[in-house]
């Protein structure tokens, strides 16, 4: 059994969208295109507004992903955990479908006895280790995020360490929003070794608009064009060799 490529958007934001379409609707579309949307809400000391919290949950729920609200200093570990959980969740969905084909329509994960579930989980774990992963990180760089960007960068290089430790191939791209002419723009193209972000990242910060919905749409477009390019070029990117000291 092969899980193929797991595609995820990881949205990092600190507040409510205030421009363009409902991000939850775009996330629902993403899910239809087999792209999972995860959301991390970063807060400083203050709590996030209840509207912001609701939106974050709603985006992840319709995007088939995981959401979490964290203090800035816990960001690195959370990014890693959310990405991992979302992968497991997606793979569980994949395995669930297979199960239904074998055992019949009504059989879901919850209907399996804990013992059978254990066997299935071993398969999920194995797939999670081997699957190829593409993560497009979409970072909100609006004014209020400015002080949090160093920790965001740290969290992303840390995510790269975690992904490099797997057997499967992975690539990360970083897009930021809002951008000058578009809702979002790429900051870093697909790479399997994210050591640091361009220096301009720390200096990013723009006005008060937060076009989360349109930015998610741009992210989806990036996945689409990547997929169609792939069809012509075949698989790009070097395989990461196993390193054992």
């Amino acid at each position: 059994m092969n899980a193929g490529t797991l595609r995820q958007v990881l949205l990092i934001t600190d507040g409510c969208s205030n421009q363009g379409e409902d991000p939850a609707a775009v996330a629902a579309l993403a899910r239809e295109e087999q792209v999972t949307v995860n959301v991390i809400g970063v807060i400083e000391q203050d709590a996030i507004s209840s509207n912001g919290e609701k939106e974050i949950e709603a985006i992840a729920a319709s995007g088939g992903g995981v959401s979490q609200i964290v203090y800035t200093k816990q960001l690195a570990q959370t990014v890693q955990m959310v990405t991992r959980q979302a992968m497991t969740q997606t793979l569980q969905g994949v395995v669930n479908k297979e199960l239904q084909q074998i055992l019949g329509e009504d059989t879901a994960w919850e209907d399996l006895s804990p013992e059978r579930r254990g066997e299935v989980m071993e398969v999920v774990d194995e797939l999670g280790e081997q699957a190829d992963v593409e993560v497009l990180v979409l970072v909100d760089t609006s004014a209020s995020m400015r002080t949090k960007l160093p920790r965001v960068e740290e969290a992303l290089t840390d995510l790269s360490v975690s992904l490099q430790s797997r057997s499967g191939r992975h690539e990360i791209a970083v897009h930021i929003f809002p951008a000058k002419r578009k809702a979002a723009e790429p900051l870093l193209n697909w790479t399997s070794e994210l050591n640091r972000l361009p220096a301009t990242f720390q200096r990013m910060s723009s006005g008060g608009v937060t076009p989360t919905g349109p930015a998610l749409n741009e992210a989806l477009a990036a996945f689409r064009s990547r997929r169609s390019k792939r069809r012509y070029l075949g698989r790009g990117g070097g395989e990461v060799e196993e390193r054992i000291d």
């Binding site: 690195a76 570990q77 955990m81 991992r84 774990d125 280790e129 840390d158 360490v161 975690s162 992904l163 490099q164 430790s165 797997r166 057997s167 390193r243 000291d245």
Partner: peptide, 20 residues
């Protein structure tokens, strides 16, 4: 495989002293 769960202070990846 890749380590499933870790805590920053005790994790060599966080210290930049290896992978996970």
């Amino acid at each position: 495989r890749a380590v499933k769960e870790f805590t920053e202070f005790y994790d060599r990846g966080t210290w930049g002293l290896g992978d996970r």
